[in-house]
Amino acid sequence: MDVFMKGLSKAKEGVVAAAEKTKQGVAEAAGKTKEGVLYVGSKTKEGVVHGVATVAEKTKEQVTNVGGAVVTGVTAVAQKTVEGAGSIAAATGFVKKDQLGKNEEGAPQEGILEDMPVDPDNEAYEMPSEEGYQDYEPEA
């Protein structure tokens, strides 16, 4: 019985440690998101679009440190934060509304985080759909 109880105690310690790591990862992701939003706020009209992409990228980098179902929630929060940063930029006159959601080359930025393969159960990952990809044929 002692062996059984000791095993359960060790398992509990492992769960607590994993929860603490997840909590730490979420806190880091939130900190990076805040950094990115402050970065966007300090940019001029020309830099705002690039700044919004930076927020998304920093958040995406930190999301990889967070495991399990938390990833889905962090990704949703990050996307809403990026959308909010863009709205703030438009409201303050840093950028025109028609410039939001495009990178410096004018290509749409939507789907940055949505296409990231995420499995809350950590069982399997699927690649994003290939609808947006084109076949590449090298020139002879």
Results as ranks from 00 to 15, higher is better:
residue 1 M to L: 03
residue 1 M to A: 02
residue 3 V to H: 13
residue 3 V to Y: 03
residue 4 F to M: 14
residue 5 M to N: 04
residue 6 K to F: 11
residue 6 K to T: 03
residue 7 G to L: 05
residue 8 L to W: 15
residue 9 S to I: 13
residue 9 S to C: 06
residue 9 S to D: 08
residue 10 K to N: 05
residue 10 K to H: 06
residue 10 K to A: 09
residue 10 K to F: 00
residue 10 K to V: 11
residue 11 A to F: 14
residue 11 A to K: 00
residue 11 A to T: 05
residue 12 K to E: 00
residue 12 K to Q: 03
residue 12 K to F: 07
residue 12 K to D: 00
residue 13 E to T: 07
residue 13 E to V: 05
residue 14 G to P: 01
residue 14 G to F: 06
residue 15 V to N: 00
residue 15 V to G: 04
residue 16 V to R: 08
residue 16 V to K: 01
residue 17 A to C: 08
residue 17 A to M: 14
residue 17 A to G: 08
residue 21 K to S: 10
residue 21 K to E: 02
residue 21 K to R: 08
residue 21 K to P: 00
residue 22 T to N: 01
residue 22 T to F: 03
residue 22 T to W: 08
residue 23 K to M: 15
residue 24 Q to C: 12
residue 24 Q to D: 06
residue 25 G to K: 13
residue 25 G to Q: 13
residue 25 G to H: 15
residue 26 V to N: 00
residue 27 A to Q: 12
residue 27 A to V: 08
residue 28 E to W: 03
residue 28 E to G: 09
residue 28 E to C: 03
residue 28 E to K: 07
residue 28 E to Q: 04
residue 29 A to M: 04
residue 29 A to E: 00
residue 30 A to F: 05
residue 30 A to G: 02
residue 31 G to P: 01
residue 31 G to Y: 10
residue 31 G to M: 00
residue 32 K to D: 01
residue 32 K to C: 15
residue 32 K to T: 06
residue 33 T to K: 04
residue 33 T to I: 07
residue 33 T to H: 04
residue 34 K to V: 14
residue 34 K to M: 14
residue 35 E to I: 15
residue 35 E to A: 06
residue 35 E to C: 15
residue 35 E to K: 07
residue 36 G to S: 07
residue 37 V to Q: 00
residue 37 V to W: 13
residue 38 L to T: 04
residue 38 L to S: 01
residue 38 L to E: 05
residue 39 Y to E: 03
residue 39 Y to G: 02
residue 39 Y to A: 04
residue 40 V to I: 01
residue 41 G to H: 02
residue 41 G to T: 08
residue 42 S to W: 14
residue 42 S to C: 15
residue 42 S to R: 05
residue 42 S to V: 10
residue 43 K to A: 07
residue 43 K to R: 11
residue 43 K to E: 01
residue 44 T to M: 12
residue 44 T to H: 04
residue 45 K to G: 06
residue 45 K to S: 12
residue 47 G to V: 03
residue 47 G to W: 11
residue 48 V to I: 14
residue 48 V to K: 01
residue 48 V to H: 01
residue 49 V to Y: 04
residue 49 V to T: 11
residue 49 V to P: 02
residue 50 H to R: 09
residue 50 H to K: 08
residue 50 H to I: 13
residue 51 G to T: 13
residue 51 G to I: 13
residue 51 G to F: 01
residue 52 V to D: 01
residue 52 V to M: 02
residue 52 V to N: 01
residue 52 V to S: 04
residue 53 A to Q: 00
residue 53 A to V: 10
residue 55 V to D: 01
residue 55 V to K: 01
residue 55 V to T: 07
residue 57 E to W: 07
residue 57 E to H: 05
residue 57 E to N: 07
residue 57 E to A: 07
residue 57 E to R: 03
residue 57 E to G: 09
residue 58 K to L: 08
residue 58 K to A: 10
residue 58 K to T: 08
residue 59 T to L: 06
residue 59 T to F: 15
residue 59 T to A: 13
residue 60 K to I: 10
residue 61 E to Q: 10
residue 61 E to K: 06
residue 61 E to C: 09
residue 62 Q to D: 07
residue 62 Q to V: 12
residue 62 Q to H: 07
residue 62 Q to A: 09
residue 62 Q to I: 08
residue 63 V to T: 04
residue 64 T to L: 11
residue 64 T to A: 10
residue 64 T to H: 07
residue 64 T to Y: 15
residue 64 T to M: 12
residue 65 N to A: 09
residue 65 N to C: 11
residue 65 N to K: 12
residue 66 V to Y: 15
residue 66 V to C: 14
residue 66 V to D: 01
residue 67 G to L: 07
residue 67 G to V: 12
residue 67 G to W: 09
residue 67 G to N: 01
residue 67 G to D: 02
residue 68 G to N: 15
residue 68 G to T: 08
residue 68 G to K: 10
residue 68 G to Q: 03
residue 69 A to C: 03
residue 69 A to G: 05
residue 69 A to W: 11
residue 69 A to M: 13
residue 70 V to E: 05
residue 70 V to Y: 05
residue 70 V to L: 15
residue 71 V to R: 06
residue 72 T to L: 13
residue 72 T to A: 08
residue 72 T to K: 06
residue 73 G to A: 05
residue 74 V to E: 02
residue 74 V to P: 04
residue 75 T to I: 13
residue 75 T to Q: 06
residue 75 T to F: 06
residue 76 A to C: 14
residue 76 A to K: 09
residue 77 V to N: 03
residue 77 V to S: 02
residue 77 V to W: 15
residue 77 V to F: 08
residue 77 V to P: 03
residue 77 V to L: 12
residue 77 V to G: 06
residue 78 A to R: 07
residue 78 A to D: 00
residue 78 A to E: 02
residue 78 A to C: 15
residue 79 Q to M: 03
residue 79 Q to T: 09
residue 81 T to C: 13
residue 81 T to G: 07
residue 81 T to M: 11
residue 81 T to H: 02
residue 82 V to S: 06
residue 82 V to W: 01
residue 82 V to P: 08
residue 82 V to K: 09
residue 82 V to E: 05
residue 82 V to I: 12
residue 82 V to C: 13
residue 82 V to G: 10
residue 83 E to S: 10
residue 83 E to P: 06
residue 83 E to R: 11
residue 84 G to A: 03
residue 84 G to V: 04
residue 84 G to K: 07
residue 85 A to L: 13
residue 85 A to P: 04
residue 86 G to N: 07
residue 86 G to P: 03
residue 86 G to F: 14
residue 87 S to D: 13
residue 87 S to I: 04
residue 88 I to A: 06
residue 89 A to F: 10
residue 90 A to F: 11
residue 90 A to I: 04
residue 90 A to W: 15
residue 91 A to H: 12
residue 91 A to M: 14
residue 91 A to P: 14
residue 92 T to W: 15
residue 93 G to I: 11
residue 93 G to E: 07
residue 93 G to L: 04
residue 94 F to E: 05
residue 94 F to D: 06
residue 95 V to Y: 08
residue 96 K to W: 15
residue 96 K to N: 11
residue 96 K to Y: 14
residue 97 K to D: 13
residue 97 K to Y: 10
residue 97 K to I: 15
residue 98 D to P: 12
residue 99 Q to F: 11
residue 99 Q to D: 05
residue 100 L to M: 09
residue 100 L to Y: 13
residue 100 L to N: 09
residue 100 L to W: 11
residue 100 L to D: 10
residue 101 G to P: 00
residue 101 G to A: 13
residue 101 G to T: 06
residue 102 K to V: 07
residue 102 K to R: 02
residue 103 N to Y: 06
residue 103 N to K: 02
residue 103 N to C: 13
residue 105 E to A: 05
residue 105 E to M: 01
residue 105 E to Q: 13
residue 106 G to K: 12
residue 106 G to H: 14
residue 106 G to N: 14
residue 106 G to Q: 15
residue 106 G to C: 13
residue 107 A to G: 09
residue 107 A to H: 10
residue 107 A to M: 03
residue 107 A to F: 14
residue 107 A to V: 04
residue 108 P to H: 07
residue 108 P to Y: 03
residue 109 Q to P: 13
residue 109 Q to I: 07
residue 109 Q to S: 14
residue 109 Q to M: 09
residue 110 E to Y: 11
residue 110 E to T: 09
residue 110 E to D: 06
residue 112 I to Y: 05
residue 112 I to D: 08
residue 113 L to W: 03
residue 113 L to M: 13
residue 113 L to P: 03
residue 114 E to D: 15
residue 114 E to I: 15
residue 114 E to N: 09
residue 114 E to S: 12
residue 115 D to R: 10
residue 115 D to Q: 12
residue 115 D to L: 09
residue 116 M to A: 10
residue 117 P to K: 04
residue 117 P to A: 07
residue 117 P to H: 04
residue 117 P to Q: 11
residue 118 V to H: 12
residue 118 V to G: 10
residue 118 V to P: 05
residue 118 V to W: 14
residue 119 D to F: 11
residue 120 P to Q: 05
residue 120 P to D: 12
residue 120 P to F: 15
residue 120 P to W: 10
residue 121 D to I: 08
residue 121 D to H: 12
residue 122 N to G: 10
residue 122 N to H: 08
residue 122 N to W: 03
residue 122 N to T: 02
residue 123 E to T: 09
residue 123 E to K: 07
residue 124 A to S: 12
residue 124 A to I: 03
residue 125 Y to E: 13
residue 125 Y to A: 09
residue 125 Y to F: 11
residue 126 E to M: 10
residue 126 E to Y: 08
residue 126 E to H: 14
residue 127 M to W: 13
residue 127 M to R: 07
residue 127 M to Q: 05
residue 128 P to A: 14
residue 128 P to C: 10
residue 128 P to D: 04
residue 128 P to M: 03
residue 129 S to G: 15
residue 129 S to V: 00
residue 129 S to H: 12
residue 129 S to K: 05
residue 130 E to T: 05
residue 130 E to N: 09
residue 130 E to P: 10
residue 130 E to A: 11
residue 130 E to F: 04
residue 131 E to Y: 14
residue 131 E to M: 01
residue 131 E to I: 14
residue 131 E to F: 02
residue 132 G to K: 14
residue 133 Y to A: 08
residue 133 Y to F: 11
residue 133 Y to L: 11
residue 133 Y to S: 02
residue 133 Y to N: 12
residue 133 Y to R: 12
residue 133 Y to P: 14
residue 134 Q to V: 10
residue 135 D to M: 14
residue 135 D to K: 10
residue 135 D to P: 10
residue 135 D to A: 03
residue 135 D to R: 03
residue 135 D to W: 08
residue 136 Y to F: 11
residue 137 E to M: 10
residue 137 E to G: 15
residue 137 E to I: 10
residue 137 E to Y: 02
residue 138 P to L: 11
residue 138 P to G: 11
residue 138 P to H: 05
residue 138 P to F: 09
residue 138 P to N: 12
residue 139 E to V: 08
residue 139 E to I: 09
residue 140 A to E: 11
residue 140 A to Y: 08
residue 140 A to K: 15
residue 140 A to C: 11
residue 140 A to W: 10
